[in-house]
């Protein structure tokens, strides 16, 4: 790695001031797990890193808001979320997804804000958060804004954030009565990045579905909602509906080929995993013996 300068601002506002809008060689660093990989590979050569490690401790806390929403500071580590009682109560699907997210050491260091801002399509939390309807509050030099996580990603490793904007907080509406699941499918080894992630959140009453959100990730350039498949689920849950929804999702998700598998194969995975994810959310047994 090449030498660079490290700035250690004491507040998030100060950090934003140090970032600047135009210099791509200046970037914020929090846990740094993803950034270190990019720097070691030489794909990112910073002149200055703006460390977020000494900003206000409030940005590392997870609390329960007035309306039961989870308010997760951007600097909260992924492992703090995994073990947070508020998360276990308010959105158990998040805690469960974290268990197979990368590995313990990464989760100990990586932060929620960094995880989202990195915009690697193979990340596990974005599909879950989109399914739950989460938003991020973003601070910038001139204005602050709230962005649904669904609208955060512009493409492959790309967000809608400006260089001098920082995610301050993640706001997750209470899971409430919604049934949710996240299934991760790996094709090269058990501890691999996902070839496909499927998150679902369903507002149901028996077999009736009031609202369904499905999010496909990893097999696509960015997390994607197959809205036609979601609409099909509103026909009410049955084997035939699940099959149609899986097929529709495979058709519309924009699956791409990569080292995890061809697009044709991953479309099949989408077909199967959308169905399995809905069954998992609703705790409907599948033909597959579930292995923990």
């Amino acid at each position: 790695m090449m030498p660079f300068e490290i700035a250690e601002p004491r507040s998030l506002r100060e950090a934003i001031g140090l970032l600047g809008r135009d210099d791509p060689s200046v970037r914020p660093i929090a846990g740094g797990t993803a950034l270190m990989l990019m720097m070691k590979a030489g794909v990112f050569r910073p002149t200055r890193l703006v460390s977020l490690r000494s900003i206000e401790p409030a940005f590392a806390r997870t609390t329960l808001g007035a309306e039961g929403e989870l308010r997760i500071g951007a600097l909260a580590s992924l492992s703090s979320l995994e073990h947070s009682q508020a998360v276990l109560n308010g959105a158990p699907v998040i805690a469960k997804a974290l268990r197979t997210l990368s590995n313990v050491r990464v989760r100990n260091v990586a932060t929620v804000g960094g995880h989202l801002a990195h915009a690697d399509p193979h990340m596990d939390l974005p599909p879950v958060l989109i399914a739950l309807g989460a938003r991020v509050s973003v601070l910038g030099p001139s204005c602050d804004r709230l962005i649904p996580v669904e609208n955060l990603f512009a493409g492959y490793y790309e967000t809608v954030l400006a260089r001098d904007e920082l995610i301050a907080e993640l706001i997750v509406p209470p899971q409430g009565g919604r049934r949710a699941a996240y299934l991760k499918c790996t094709t090269r080894s058990a501890d691999d990045w996902p070839a496909l992630g499927v998150a679902v959140a369903l507002d149901t009453d028996g077999t009736a579905v009031h609202e369904a959100r499905i999010v496909i990730s990893a097999a696509t350039h960015k997390p994607t909602r197959p809205v036609a498949a979601e609409a099909i689920l509103r026909d009410g849950i049955s084997d035939a509906v699940l099959r149609r929804a899986g097929a529709a999702a495979a058709e519309e998700a924009g699956v791409i080929s990569d080292t995890h598998g061809s697009a044709a194969y991953k479309r099949q995975l989408v077909r199967v995993y959308v169905e399995r994810a809905v069954r998992a959310a609703l705790a409907i047994p599948t033909g597959k013996q579930r292995r923990a």
Binding site: T187, G261, S262, A263, A264, Y265, Q268
Partner: peptide, 21 residues
């Protein structure tokens, strides 16, 4: 023996070969 290779073989055996891409 990747999962994709197995799945493709299953489809081919069923005379329903999976398209290449």
């Amino acid at each position: 023996v990747t999962p994709e290779a197995v799945y493709r073989a299953l489809r081919a055996a069923n005379n329903d070969a999976l398209e290449e891409e």
